[in-house]
Design a protein around this nucleic acid. Structure first.
Lengths: 149, 149
DNA sequence: TTTTATTCAGAACAATTTGTCTGAATATGA
DNA sequence: TCATATTCAGACAAATTGTTCTGAATAAAA
């Protein structure tokens, strides 16, 4: 069940939060990320590759390889990951699916939804990844406790 | 591009709004709805059937057949259509896709998203269909103007 | 140089969602 | 009663999204 982001995007957000919360490591192997987040390894690997193409993370090949953020956590915002994977379409499409929904031809819930959308955008844009470190670590701990077999 | 609802749900909402805005008609034929809303006829027909099973609309077969609301517009809220088609999962799933996201084990954006989610739910629950009549009629007019070939 | 462990790249596969087709059941009016 | 126009039901097809597989390129260490 995805809420507003695709699964790809959800996993991408989780993985980037994970990397930000583990900056003390030089790089993190993809199978570690997959295991800790309980995501299929090959899938998260694909997602990380595409985030690399977008310049959000970088990778090191070979025996001591892995992934790491391309910038400091204080320089990255969640919206960047959303934009790279799902795009910003959800922030200017009609929630009821009507075509050409705009102030001249608003849908029945145009104004109310517009406010929520703006707040959602702010939520994803305002804080940088470093602000999420503690909350991410807590959350990941709770996954490995209840999570896998 | 869907925002938070599936296409099925978007079309269902549009169709129900359409029926509510055209209560003067006894019933409306599915091909009229499809044409006015610019939705594939067979698809909207399927969606209307399922809304009928949920008791939100009713149908009349045969030559003078068509669809109509099962209750007065003042008795129907948008959330009922959402619940019937997509379910209420989006209102209690984690926006980042983390498992077991709850106050004890919140995800990094749990609180902020929780507020938005509550407001979205309110938006869909508070007003009844009759309140949307004018806005729906306006919007439908703008579709047939710009819309199909 | 060889072995080993990793990312990389792309194809192949699977599941879900979206959309289409066909024919039967039903109701109206000539 | 018969012709016509509609919903109904379910199978089918296409598109999108999600997932897995396979093998190559790369880098480190023995």
């Amino acid at each position: 069940m995805t809420v507003i982001f695709s699964k790809k995007c959800e996993y991408g957000l989780q993985a980037v939060l994970y990397l930000a919360a583990n900056m003390q490591e030089e790089v993190v192997r993809v199978d570690v990320i997959a295991k800790e987040l309980n995501i299929p390894k090959e899938f998260v690997s694909k997602i990380l590759q595409s985030l690399r193409e977008h310049g959000i993370i970088e990778s090191k090949k070979g025996k001591t390889g892995g992934f790491a953020l391309a910038k400091a956590p204080s320089e990255i915002r969640l919206i960047e990951i959303v934009e790279a994977i799902d795009g910003l379409g959800i922030f200017n499409s009609c929630v009821l699916g009507f075509p050409n929904c705009n102030p001249e031809h608003p849908c029945p819930v145009h104004d109310k939804w517009g406010k929520l959308r703006t707040e959602a955008y702010k939520m994803l844009s305002e804080e940088t990844l470093d602000r999420f470190k503690e909350r991410t670590l807590d959350k990941i701990r709770s996954i490995s406790m209840t999570g896998e077999a």
